[in-house]
Amino acid sequence: MSITREIPVRPPLALTVVGVLGGAALLLPFVALVAGVDLRRLPRLLTSPEALDALWLSLRTSLTATAVCLVLGIPLALALNRLDFPGRSLARSLVLLPLVVPPVVGGIALTEAFGRRGLVGEHLHALGIEIAFTSAAVVLAQVFVSLPFLVVALEGTLQTRGEAHERTALSLGASPARTFLTVTLPLMGPGLLAGTVLTFARALGEFGATITFAGSLQGTTRTLPLQVYLERETDPEAAVALSLVLVAVALAVITLAYGRRRVRLP
């Protein structure tokens, strides 16, 4: 699509002014957060046993959740994009559900499904498998809320790349498995990177579903966001310091996902 004439298209000035205000509304809280940090106390606040436990737990669970999302998300995105089945567009919308419902609703839904008296959890309980109050519950909550990010990113890439390359490979006699590994997967590359990074970020920030479904215990289920929420009760400075860590990670994630390549947001 080439532009025929070199007339720059600009929004009206009034809208630009409002737009700048909108930008300020987004950034001001973060500026205030950074301004609120007591630099002298920062090292001690970030290295307290509680903070380190929360950080380590958050990293472990978020990485696990991201791995699970990749294992489940790549096939799911492929099925939604490459398979023709009745109700496909409905299925594609439903995948977005965890992304749209409030996290606390997600937590209640997870409890209804995997809680001790839940639809599936009841049978797991009978088999001696307990999910609630374990780190597995944290991972489950993280997968639930972050999987849609990966699926949407991958689907977007699959859509724009089209099927031509895969069709060529298949017509030249490559097996479906080989076509997937050598053609489809590399084609998904950019979406995979952006999607994976966003998935990790969403998992790291998960709060509502975790506190509702998994509980809050140091080293087991109290992730960084839950630690921030609890610290706020008695030591707001510690809460601010820990928040800063999450903001720093978020900034790194945005840079990684959108900095070098101009990958479009889904």
Binding site: T111, G115, R116, R117, A132, F133, I211, T212, G215, S216, L217, Q218, T221, R222, Y229, L230, E233
Partner: peptide
Amino acid sequence: SEESSVTDVLGKVTSGE
């Protein structure tokens, strides 16, 4: 679990968790 509020504790008990 050590919850942030008494209502969260009650919720975990009423739900049977």
